[in-house]
Design a protein around this nucleic acid. Structure first.
Lengths: 247, 247
DNA sequence: CGTACAGTTGATGATCATCAATCCCTGTGG
DNA sequence: CCACAGGGATTGATGATCATCAACTGTACG
């Protein structure tokens, strides 16, 4: 078991046990940034609905094409949601962390394969029961709607990211995303990088080699260091942000 | 007024007047493909809620950053949803046609600018009233949820599309999308192309010139012809599909 | 110790962006 | 009716960036 596997226990991220939903709501903000969507009441309901399931690293949660019978909320850990293309190519459509949702299907079948990157625990919500709960509680349903809209925005952002030409910029954007989603307890501004270079490549639409070279470039320019494969640290915040937000 | 502007009147697409929602539902299919999500009852409700608004080509529906006070459903026409980046660059996150939804906000503000490509009519649903309606009718809300999930899948597909290397493949994918969304009344397998090459470039993450060259290549290879700037016709379906689905 | 997998580096070619010049179409005003 | 202006579209030349292939290193783990 490696270092970063141990570190991703929720040290302060969630105070409550059980499933949790977070999103930036689409109505005007009462407080800025991500908001916990579930009231204690709703939380209770989902706890009764859901079964916690643990997955070791690399375990498959579900496969593309499987009959969709459940929705999952990430509790701990990190997973990837991917799709296989021709010729052994693979595209990762999202990395998911605590509070994220996956398992949305098309016509009764999952459209992505979801696989654990680190040992993870997921809350499994039976689709039929969830549907019934949503039918009976439009407030809860509204929270789910907010969450899906949130994911829609992230997917659009992802599309913008990978349409960029420069590999270093794409990588910076991923690192910034990891900063936002990563374990908040990391000391000294370090960033957890739970996925492999190959996963990063599939997410950014680059080759593995280009990811390595982009990493090297960031290090050579003194913008980011990579103490090891699963950690990064931003050294020059100014230039880092310039890279991450440049067109 | 050009030819293609005239042709996009709903000739058979919608039997009812008023707003319409379509999506591939995520539960197991009773019938394949896109499904009308609104019952006559729900439809009534939205008609009372919504006001039809007409926009000439190039008119702005709303701007990125505006206070979000309404959600829109496209009735007729085609619009683009885009975002401005640095240095005059622009990214189009989606082209929207009849039955599509736009106006989803983040923290009370629109995150995209929506602009009409052709003369269009949109149903404007006041956000507060819509929220109330969704609160009171969890069935209606569920339909909206289906629709947003549908858009999420399309956004993910878009990300996959523009991560491809070959310009011709990306273009083929866009044409196939236009075939699916376009006016179904077009005779002889022609495809309506309501947007400019520049819009296509911004959508596919290419330069304008690359779009032109990709078009030329498709013509030279006898796969697609472009009778004029706003029409395309697939000649060799076999090779076209190969291009559109290749990794 | 040896296998397997992740990561690294270099050389080469493919593809695209950019710049610049030009064309084409449309609408406008003389 | 024609000249002109302007945006969109087209084409060519050049350089930047990335993918690919291949060889190699490092690390984890039985």
């Amino acid at each position: 078991m490696t270092d970063w596997m141990r570190q991703r226990n929720d040290t302060g991220a969630t105070s409550r046990r059980g499933p949790s939903l977070r999103a930036i709501p689409f109505h005007a903000p009462s407080c800025p940034g991500l908001v916990d969507l579930l009231s204690a009441n709703h939380h209770e309901r989902l706890v009764r609905l859901g079964a916690v399931r643990h997955f070791p690293a690399r375990a498959i949660v579900y496969r593309e094409g499987d009959t969709a019978d459940a929705v999952f909320i990430i509790g701990e850990g990190a997973v990837k949601s991917c799709r296989d293309l021709r010729r052994g190519r693979r595209r990762i459509s999202a990395f998911l962390f605590a509070h994220d949702v996956c398992g949305l299907a098309e016509a009764g079948r999952y459209v992505n394969t979801v696989q654990a990157l680190t040992p993870s625990s997921l809350y499994r919500l039976d689709l039929h029961e969830l549907s019934r709960a949503l039918q009976h509680d439009s407030e809860l349903e509204f929270r789910f709607l907010c969450r899906i809209v949130h994911e829609l925005r992230e997917a659009q952002q992802h599309a913008v990211t990978i349409s960029r030409r420069h590999a270093a910029g794409r990588l910076a954007l991923l690192l910034r995303m990891l900063e936002a989603n990563g374990a908040p307890s990391t000391p000294g501004g370090g960033v957890q990088v739970p996925m492999t270079r190959s996963d990063i490549a599939d997410y950014l639409g680059l080759s593995l080699e280009s990811v390595v070279r982009a990493s090297r470039r960031l290090e050579r320019q003194g913008i980011v260091t990579f103490p090891d494969r699963h950690h990064a640290r931003v050294l020059d915040r100014r230039r880092f942000e310039a890279l991450a937000s440049a067109a």
